[in-house]
């Protein structure tokens, strides 16, 4: 079977189809108490499938907050 469409709570349908991070391949069950032992933080390492690096083809950072509509290299 194909890999399930890589998904993550960190990305939405508006996010570029080429954006990836480890959590999209790890099938975790989040402990509901996860953020009761510390506040939210972002240790996510994103990458672009086109460059295989944390920078997109346009040289800007690949990140859920940046890889979406309006960015030239973004596609869905």
């Amino acid at each position: 079977m194909d890999h399930p469409k890589p998904a993550s709570p960190l990305v939405s349908h508006a996010t570029c189809e080429h954006l990836r991070h480890k959590g999209m391949y790890v099938m975790s069950v989040v402990d509901p108490a996860e953020f009761q032992f510390y506040d939210k933080y972002d240790a996510t390492a994103y990458w672009c499938t086109k460059t295989q690096k944390p920078l997109g083809p346009d040289g800007k950072a690949a990140h859920a907050s940046a890889c979406h509509d309006g960015r030239e290299c973004c596609s869905h």
Binding site: Y38, A43, P54, A61, A62
Partner: peptide
């Protein structure tokens, strides 16, 4: 620093 274009977040305070 996470280097070129990558983040560096970590949980704090811890536990």
């Amino acid at each position: 620093t996470g280097g070129a274009g990558a983040g560096s977040g970590f949980p704090l305070p811890y536990i």
